[in-house]
């Protein structure tokens, strides 16, 4: 892989993970994996982000935070659930304060398995998300085109 068409900016939110996936997400940015060379930047501002990386399961207290972050992101946007906890709740699924995977509140596009998800898997997930992002962009453009056409 020599280049990617778009350089997605990433917003990372730790649902209720054990930190394992979070440090692997951060490890993707650091010299061994270094996704920044493709222009992938971990941003703290949801309005700048294209991809939401969510690690860990959701609970009653963080559901509003997760929803708010997602709503603040500009369209088109993609959600990647990193790790088994974000997919189903994993080993914590029986805990009383765990509602379940991220898909209980958000439309998840890509699931990255693993406990903890390896950086290679996280990068692969982001690449797949990028393809979905492009697809979404195309459909959005088509829709806009037909609407404008109908207006005339």
């Amino acid at each position: 892989m020599n280049f990617i068409k778009k350089s997605p900016w990433i917003l990372h939110y730790d649902g209720s993970s054990c930190n394992g996936c979070d440090i692997e997400v951060l490890a993707c940015l650091t010299p061994l994996y270094d996704v920044e060379r493709f222009g992938v930047i971990n941003t703290g501002n949801p309005k700048h982000a294209d991809i939401l990386l969510i690690t860990g399961s959701v609970n009653e207290q963080n559901i509003p935070v997760v929803k708010q972050l997602y709503e603040q992101m500009a369209e088109p946007r993609v959600v990647v659930a990193v790790g088994i906890c974000a997919a189903t709740g994993g080993i914590f699924s029986e805990c009383y304060n765990v509602v379940g995977g991220a898909d209980k509140v958000l439309p998840v596009d890509v699931y990255v398995p693993g406990c903890a998800a390896r950086p290679e898997a996280v990068i692969d997930g982001v690449m797949r998300a990028l393809a979905i992002l492009e697809e979404k962009q195309k459909t959005a453009r088509c829709k806009k085109g037909t609407q404008e056409g109908a207006g005339v």
């Binding site: 730790d14 209720s16 399961s57 609970n59 207290q61 080993i91 914590f92 029986e94 805990c95 406990c115």
Partner: peptide, 24 residues
């Protein structure tokens, strides 16, 4: 924001299984 309730999980996982919960 990241409270899961791991201490209570000890009632559902036996003492050998709980090692893996403790790690997490």
């Amino acid at each position: 924001y990241i409270h899961r309730g791991l201490e209570k999980l000890v009632e559902k996982k036996d003492y050998l299984q709980y090692t893996y919960v403790a790690e997490r």
